[in-house]
Design a protein around this nucleic acid. Structure first.
Length: 296
DNA sequence: AGTAGCACCTGATTGC
DNA sequence: TGCAATCAGGTGCTAC
């Protein structure tokens, strides 16, 4: 779930609460959470004793910079990951996959990584210099990213996102535009909810072959994507239930603003026609058959 | 090289 | 009531 606005809410929370703290102890409660590391012990050893300098994000990929950037503690929330911070730690929740005990100037702090569906992970890895996630262009500065994030494109709200390059990539593909929106190597951070919302807003049918999109339409779609995500971010993200919360366990309320996602059969808020719903590329997709006319 | 399909999981809900 | 099928906000590997 968590898409860019939700992950950004988590990043802000971590930045506020754990920046400057030192990792005193790591308890991996489910070995598979560290499956990208050689072993859970290797993961725990690598981060124990490290100081947290910053919380950084690209798209849905999140990492804590440790010890002046010598190491990244990467995290992906998958479908159901959460970070929760406690000053007075409860018994670990059944979905708690790892517990970090941090020491801070104000005393100990507990950071739990919860993940019901276990698609999320934690990883300790080096940072590598990369070219921009998007090819070409002049003067794109080398970026330092965790190894596992090196192939991910700039995120949709990154001011340095090269719009022209993204639109060109979109229009080159043979897949439907929805699948391209979800391709994290081109623009990152767009997930199934915001893809549907952006397409509805831009009045683009999800199965439109991307090659058939005019340059103007592609630009408007990118505008719509950024607008939707920006609004969701301002609202603290989208959540339908207790599965998606910030580090304090609070939910965002952008779900009140959804126009397409989850509204199959309900009237389009622009034209009143019932919205369609179907599986596209394995993901449930919602659109207005009148406002978002198909390619033919 | 680009793309479709599936695998990875748990839990809530729906339908028989 | 019980049990199976279906669905959920994501990514990455494999086989075409």
């Amino acid at each position: 779930m968590p898409e860019l606005p939700e992950v950004e809410s988590v990043r802000l929370g971590l930045e506020r609460t754990v920046r400057g703290a030192t990792v005193a102890r790591v308890d991996v409660r489910r070995a598979s959470v560290a499956r990208r590391s050689p072993s859970p012990f290797a993961f725990a050893n690598a981060v124990t004793g490290a100081r947290i300098d910053a919380a950084v994000r690209r798209g849905k990929f999140l990492w804590l910079l440790l010890d002046d950037g010598s190491l990244a503690l990467s995290a992906h929330l998958g479908m159901s990951g959460q970070f929760r911070v406690h000053t007075d730690p409860p018994e670990p929740h059944p979905h708690c996959r790892a517990r970090f005990t941090l020491s801070t100037a104000d005393g100990p702090l507990t950071l739990d990584f919860l993940d019901q569906r276990t698609f999320g992970y934690l990883h300790a890895e080096p940072l590598v210099g990369t070219a921009d996630g998007l090819a070409g262009g002049l003067g794109s500065p080398a970026l330092v990213l965790p190894e596992s994030v090196a192939h991910i494109g700039r995120d949709a709200l990154d001011p340095a996102l090269r719009r022209a390059a993204v639109m060109k990539q979109w229009r080159r593909g043979t897949r439907g535009i929805k699948q391209l929106l979800l391709d994290q190597t081109l623009v990152s951070g767009i997930g199934n909810i915001y893809a549907d919302e952006a397409l509805w807003r831009a009045r683009v049918n999800p199965v439109t072959p991307a090659s058939g999109l005019s340059g103007r339409a592609a630009g408007l779609l990118l505008d719509a994507t950024q607008a939707v995500m920006g609004e969701a971010l301002a609202a603290g993200g989208t959540s339908f239930d207790a599965l998606y919360v910030n580090v304090n366990g609070e939910s965002g309320y952008f779900d009140r603003s959804l126009n397409a996602y989850g509204r199959g059969g309900e009237p389009c808020l622009r034209c009143g026609r019932p919205l369609s719903r179907a599986m596209i590329g394995g993901r449930s997709t919602h659109w207005c058959p009148r406002c978002q006319r198909g390619p033919r």
